[in-house]
Design a binder for these strands. Structure first.
Length: 272
DNA sequence: ATCCAGGGGGATT
DNA sequence: AATCCCCATGGA
């Protein structure tokens, strides 16, 4: 029934639960994962990843198992703080998300906790009206852009003031245009994304890092900001510009991985 | 640069 | 049950 894969530097648990990705449900030791119109199951024992309902080819890309994480971690391991985060969570990987799904997810994320983000996204998926099943578990496909523009009842979605962002994104964006941002330099792709209402630097960087393969993107939210201040700036106030310059210079072209590790690390052992 | 509305769930009391 | 807290964005 299920297939298996050897995964040397990989932690399914940390990869799922670090807050980068929202569409999964934990059922015992199994994660039922949804993305786009897919629904499949993953579980891990030691260095073996078991999967069901998905092709290996997709999974390798989705979980970035085609990437030499060990080599990347060596490159970002620049100081005792990041070193400790890497030691604690080695195997945490970026998930390569669908760009459109990623944009909508992070538009929903502004000033929200993870449970509510998940609930908004699930409600949006119900708008697509297309059911998917894995065993007893029933979900819905992620809606296409045009699906969000039509006049519908938005109240029950619970998106609040993000509603207008979502409608606008549905009107402006086609998958093609979003994917083409990959061909631009990081700065330009970021400029283009922040043209959209509701997309500031933080949300743009999330879309660039999680959806568009810009591994130098380093999303700075309040957790990261507090942590960076404490760890690298002796608790001094420091402007967003200086902070961006620092992480870019300090961590280099794989800064996004550093952000992933630091975020997970600081969220799980609060900054004093 | 700085301040703050705005929205709804979670934590706290 | 009531109140406080949280927070990315955007506009003043």
């Amino acid at each position: 029934m299920s297939s298996r894969l050897q995964v040397p530097v990989f932690s399914l648990r940390d990869t799922m639960e670090c807050g980068q990705f929202f569409r999964f449900t934990q059922v015992g030791r199994t994660y039922v994962v949804q993305t786009g119109g897919r629904i499949f199951a993953l579980w891990q024992k030691k260095d073996t990843l078991y999967y069901d309902g998905v092709e290996e080819e997709f999974l390798l890309r989705f979980l970035r198992l085609d990437e030499d994480l060990g080599a990347i971690l060596k490159m970002i391991d620049r100081d005792p703080v990041i070193h400790s985060a890497i030691e604690t969570y080695r195997g945490l990987r970026l998930i390569r998300q669908d760009p459109w799904e990623c944009l909508i997810s992070y538009l929903c994320s502004s000033a929200k906790g993870i449970p509510h983000i998940r609930s908004i996204i699930e409600n949006l998926c119900k708008c697509s009206g297309r059911k998917v099943r894995y065993g007893n578990y029933v979900g819905y496909e992620f809606p296409e852009p045009v699906c969000l523009t039509s006049s519908r009842q938005w109240d029950w979605v619970g998106a609040g003031f993000r509603k207008s962002y979502l409608v606008k994104a549905g009107q402006c964006i086609e998958r093609e245009g979003l994917i083409n941002l990959k061909n631009l330099p990081y700065r330009e792709a970021r400029e283009a994304l922040t043209e959209l209402p509701g997309v500031g630097k933080k949300v743009a960087d999330c879309v660039l890092l999680y959806g568009l393969d810009f591994l130098e993107a380093f999303p700075i939210d309040t957790w990261i900001k507090k942590g960076l201040q404490k760890a690298y700036f002796r608790n001094r106030q420091v402007g967003p510009k200086k902070m961006e310059e620092f992480v870019s210079r300090h961590f280099g072209r794989f800064a996004g991985y550093a952000q992933l590790y630091l975020y997970h690390y600081w969220r799980n052992q609060p900054i004093r």
